[in-house]
Amino acid sequence: MSDDASPGRAHGQLLLREMLRIRRFEARCSELYQAGKIRGFLHLYDGEEAVSVGVMQALGPEDAVVATYREHGQALARGIPMGPLMAEMYGKQQGCSRGRGGSMHIFDRERHFYGGNAIVGGGLPLAVGIALADRRLRRPALTACFFGEGAVDEGAFHESMNLAALWSLPLLFVCENNLYSMGTPVALAEAETDIARKARCYHMPGEAVDGMDPMAVEAAARRAVAAIRSGSGPFFLECRTYRFRAHSMFDAQLYRDKDEIGRWRQRDPIAGLQQQLRDQQLLGSDDLAGLEAGIERELADAVAFAEAGTLEPVSDLLRFVTLDKVPQ
């Protein structure tokens, strides 16, 4: 944690609140999963909150986001309201993808959120194309593409890095390196474990940052975004982070020991920022209680919204397989 830096009261509390919203939302999702309200795959972001929250601070409303299948944090930090997000988890038609996508496929046109992609690396080529369209149509936007370090093993990663650099596209590659692709540690998957170095092969600036520190992530993302907006082409940002919980709800975590998880929990981004803000007199007990209460209300409203949501009629099953016109 960068102890000497101060985010300021308002911004520091904003970062804390955004991370807490994700943590609390997912904790509730986990409970709702146990209760059978949510089914399918559920990949929790617990521990990685600083990455999305930090990166999103550097983006503007016109910028695009391409997400992963572990994207609740990316979606909330991008500003997708919690109600439609929870309704999506419930499979209700009030969900942000009308219940067609579920946890892994969150879409939001208004916020240029182009989906959680459940094929590892599958979103990277898409991000290249969105960035290409922005440039060709002279829109002053960039695309932030999130992926895990497991995606780096896919051919689509290398093809996309090459194309983005070759065409000098406005594209921010955000690698969420949580050290495991499902159960396989980086050292067993990568000949070069220093992932940020891979950008150099594509003549792309690359930087690794402490992904447990939201302020460090934000600062790095702002530098990267400034470079991209200056027209210098894509930028690669590796955020070194850790997933506190299992890969999904079906994972017994046989591949890592509890001590390792315990050591990383010492670096919890939320506890860390909370402590820092207290130390800097930027967060009082009342402030924290207020934040927590606000999030509890938002979450209660979101669950109520999802519970009250309706199921799409089965007669709509084939709707949107093909579209009659291009949505505007």
Binding site: R98, R100, F107, R109, F320, L323, K325
Partner: peptide, 9 residues
């Protein structure tokens, strides 16, 4: 198109 609930074509 389908997975996004018709938001993107």
């Amino acid at each position: 198109p389908h997975m996004s609930g018709g938001q993107f074509s």
